[in-house]
């Protein structure tokens, strides 16, 4: 099954928490440059799959290969350095720091103890942070403490933190949840722009949003793969219809 043009190859992935199999023998493949959306009813194991890929949860069985590197044995920060970025469901930012400092910490330099002690805020860093801040609509709020941002702005800030990392694979967990209509529109725009030259794995419930961005859709149900393909195909799959309507 070894094919080198997959950016991500998940094979036979399982994890159990005290005997409960949250993800069960799951396999799927993401192409380079593809935007893949994972959908499924509550408790289907969507977030757990992202947790497994980024190393937050350790797999009980199976393999996750990112550009032919096995991720299941790597630590979280090593996975980040390999090029996988993750956005959490609830905005996960550093509230006591300013927007600038939040972005600066994500700049891919000075990640060791010594590196952090000798890190200098040079022009390259300032330029990059300013550039990203503009992209995420926060250019005027660089010195605002992050806990004073609105919910939507916090979500953007976290996306900005990922952008500075410049990952090859971007994983987004419900990026538009809890946003106002206007914010949602801006976010879709933002995502469209930033997903151009990378592969993206998104969890999302908003079907309109899925239709807008998805190349392919993977449907999970009770930790297993239920269906996969274009949104059109998946929508008409009787198994999917049964699961969604049965609830």
């Amino acid at each position: 099954m070894e094919q080198k043009d997959f950016v991500l190859a998940v094979e036979g992935l399982s994890v159990s928490f005290d005997g409960f199999k949250a993800v069960n023998d799951l396999s799927f493949y993401v192409d380079e440059g593809e935007i893949r959306v994972i959908i499924g009813p509550n408790g289907a194991g969507k977030t757990t799959v992202l947790d497994l890929i980024c190393g937050r949860t350790k797999a009980t069985d199976g393999s996750i290969k990112f550009r032919n590197k096995e991720l299941t044995r790597m630590k979280e920060h090593q996975i980040v350095h390999a090029g996988v970025g993750r956005k959490f469901q609830n905005p996960s930012i550093y509230e006591d720091l300013t927007v600038f400092e939040n972005l600066e910490l994500s700049f891919p330099r000075g990640h060791s103890v010594f590196g952090a002690l000798t890190f200098r805020r040079d022009k390259q860093v300032i330029d990059k942070v300013t550039e990203v801040a503009e992209m995420i609509f926060l250019a005027d709020l660089l010195h605002q403490r992050a806990d004073l941002l609105s919910h939507g702005q916090k979500q953007w800030l976290e996306i900005g933190m990922l952008l500075i990392q410049d990952p090859a694979l971007l994983m987004l967990d419900e990026p538009v949840a809890g946003m106002s209509v206007a914010e949602r529109k801006k976010t879709a725009e933002l995502l469209n722009r930033i997903t151009r030259d990378r592969s993206v794995l998104v969890i999302e419930h908003d079907m309109q949003f899925v239709e807008d961005i998805a190349h392919r859709v993977t449907v999970l149900h009770q930790g297993r793969l239920l269906s996969e393909g274009s949104l059109e195909r998946v929508k008409n799959d009787p198994k999917v219809v049964e699961v969604y309507l049965g609830h």
Binding site: H77, A116, M161
Partner: peptide, 10 residues
């Protein structure tokens, strides 16, 4: 947790 996913060995 977030610091880990910003690529630091906490």
């Amino acid at each position: 947790d977030r610091v880990r996913f910003s690529g630091y060995d906490v």
